[in-house]
């Protein structure tokens, strides 16, 4: 019971963080048709910027400034790189973002070195929020949830309640029409790209110290985020939300489960032959591959994803 509740809380925290990434990715994808391969690189940049700022002036200014910086970097990249690559078609675009991810990782290596930096949770948030059964739930996790939920509410309000949000929604489906109505679609694209990357940056700011800030973090999170959008259905915000929480929970639950594959099959009445390597693996050991297995299963049984509208 204790395990379930704690894992659930952790899973939701992680899932919300994933959604901050996958929502930006989804918005950019459905609007511009670009799968931003470098999305997680902006997550990483967010973490490193925040770390750098925290060494100078502390955590709180970084919480605001770092995502903004990441957003500006994103917008500039859209304006001066992506827009040009766009002219050469989808493959060139995808390759551009791929090269970008590669480059960002190298730059991070160059500036901050090969090992993890000491990006810490601020002292004010370092403590226990409440104790459930015997396990402490840290304040910082609660803070992460607060920020993510706040961000989501703001995003939702922005998309549904403001003029620019409505234009964005319209441009999602009919960019030509929106352009014909006199809106500057390239500028909207730049804004969306900047906004999406800023969101990723924010996720990096609050995720970098909760987990780890190192040059490999982009690659590690990046592939999970792709799994999220495939599972949720490419281009579906609702799908991304469900899939983020689902995968967040799967990952936290599986990390805590020490029962083996044999035990799992025993639960449903199947006895596996002794001694095979697969049967002896514990769920914890399987944790890294579970999201991908889920993705494969989804592709086979529901190719358009959980909530995807179209089969692409």
């Amino acid at each position: 019971m204790e395990f379930v509740v704690i894992s659930l809380l952790n899973g939701i925290t992680y899932g919300l963080l994933l959604f901050m990434l996958s929502s930006g990715l989804t918005l950019i994808f459905s609007m511009m048709g670009i799968l931003n391969f470098a999305h997680a690189s902006f997550y990483m940049l967010g973490a490193y910027f925040a770390y750098q700022i925290s060494t100078w002036v502390g955590f709180w200014p970084g919480l605001l400034v770092a995502p903004l910086m990441v957003g500006v970097v994103g917008a500039l990249i859209e304006r001066y790189g992506l827009r040009r690559a766009h002219r050469f078609g989808h493959v060139a675009e995808l390759l551009f973002t791929f090269g970008l991810a590669f480059l960002v990782e190298e730059i991070v290596h160059l500036i901050w070195g090969n090992v993890a930096v000491d990006y810490r949770i601020p002292a004010e948030l370092d403590g226990t929020l409440f104790t459930l059964f015997d396990t402490d739930f840290p304040i910082y996790k609660g803070f992460m949830m607060l920020i993510s939920v706040g961000m989501l509410v703001a995003l939702y309000a922005l998309l549904t309640r403001t003029r620019i949000g409505l234009i964005i929604q319209a441009a999602l489906t009919k960019p030509d029409m929106v352009e014909a109505l006199g809106h500057n679609v390239p500028r909207i694209f730049m804004l969306v790209f900047g906004g999406g990357t800023a969101l990723a940056g924010l996720a990096g700011v609050i995720g970098g110290n909760a987990f780890i800030t190192e040059p490999g973090m982009a690659a590690a999170v990046g592939s999970i985020v792709f799994v999220v959008v495939v599972v949720g259905g490419l281009g579906s915000l609702g799908g991304a939300f469900v899939a983020s929480l689902l995968i967040g929970c799967i990952q936290t639950f599986s990390v805590g489960l020490t029962i083996s594959v044999t035990d799992v099959f025993a639960l449903i009445g199947i006895v596996l032959p002794e001694g095979s390597q697969v049967a002896r693996l514990t769920i914890t050991q399987l944790a890294p591959v579970l999201p991908y297995m889920l993705m494969v299963a989804i592709l086979i049984f529901r190719p358009r994803g959980l909530m995807g509208a179209r089969e692409s």
Partner: peptide, 9 residues
């Protein structure tokens, strides 16, 4: 694009 993502996964 979907192929690209799946191949990655």
């Amino acid at each position: 694009t979907t192929f690209a993502m799946i191949s990655l996964g």
